[in-house]
């Protein structure tokens, strides 16, 4: 009585063929989204160089962190003299949404070995998550192995866009004069993300309260204002949602 292995490795020749097809379908369907990872990489690479990082550390932070927004946040906080604790907490807060995605993905990718679980977790990104879950809900009968292939194809496309963008941004970064003020690209990038994160009344309140408190808390020691403002915004959104439910 041999049980089939509980991982995402295709078992039969026909399953292998299907896995390959689905992998490349994920890759191709992710391509429009890679313009975003490319441009974020471009900005991240240039911002890292502007902050005084070497080309090697700029590429390393992109590879080990694999998180555009959080990278912009920690680099920005570091150049404005924040303490390590605030930098680490801010990085964690910005990445907290991944815990939400991680939870959601784990319900679909139920058949993975240890290595596959590591890869699926390490390379989790917003666009690959969104595309994959959209596919999973449209094809509820697909096996967890085939789902894994689709997600990996999408992830490969995201990774290529990210590293190509970071490489170009790192290379250009050193050539860009300070008068260009490349560092102002960072808040502008965040601004472009606001529209996607604000969907209803509760999230609007969270955004407004977060923004106002961040201004009031500018003088907080160790640049702790960001944490105070984030928590205030989250609490405000949570309360509005609670009232709406009544």
């Amino acid at each position: 009585m041999s049980e089939p292995p509980k991982d995402a490795t295709p078992q039969t020749p026909s399953e292998r063929a299907e896995a390959r097809t689905v992998f490349w379908r994920g890759f191709v369907q992710m391509l429009p989204g890679t313009t975003g990872s490319f441009s974020t990489g471009l900005i991240c690479g240039a911002a890292a160089i502007a902050a005084g990082m070497s080309s090697l550390s700029s590429m390393a932070i992109a590879a080990f962190g694999f998180a555009g927004t959080a990278q912009l946040v920690v680099v920005q906080l570091a150049t404005t003299g924040s303490t390590l604790v605030v930098i680490a907490l801010a990085g964690l807060i910005v990445n907290l949404r991944y815990a939400m995605f991680s939870l959601s993905m784990s319900r679909y990718l139920t058949h993975m070995n240890r290595r596959q679980r590591f890869v699926a977790a390490f390379f989790l990104t917003d666009p690959a998550y969104a595309l994959s879950v959209a596919r999973f809900t449209q094809h509820p009968d697909e096996s967890p192995r085939i789902r894994y292939e689709y997600y990996m194809g999408a992830t490969l496309a995201m990774g290529i866009g990210w590293f190509a963008g970071t490489g170009l941004g790192t290379a250009l970064g050193a050539a860009m004069p300070a008068s260009w003020q490349v560092e102002f690209c960072v808040p502008l990038t965040f601004l472009a993300m606001v529209a996607a994160t604000v969907r209803d009344r509760a999230t609007v309140v969270a955004a407004v309260v977060g923004g106002i408190v961040s201004l009031l808390a500018v003088g907080f020691p160790y640049r702790g204002g960001l944490l105070v403002a984030s928590i205030a915004g989250i609490a405000a959104g949570y309360m509005v949602e609670s009232w709406q439910r009544r």
């Binding site: 902050a51 932070i61 080990f64 680099v75 990445n95 991944y98």
Partner: peptide, 30 residues
């Protein structure tokens, strides 16, 4: 106003971001 990061600062930052990015992602998947 903005300071320039030293080599040590940069690698500390890489370590911090690596952990802060991987923990939430790994939470349920890994």
């Amino acid at each position: 106003m903005a300071t320039t990061l030293s080599t040590l600062d940069a690698w500390i930052l890489i370590a911090i971001l690596s952990v802060a990015s991987f923990l939430p992602r790994a939470s349920f998947l890994w």
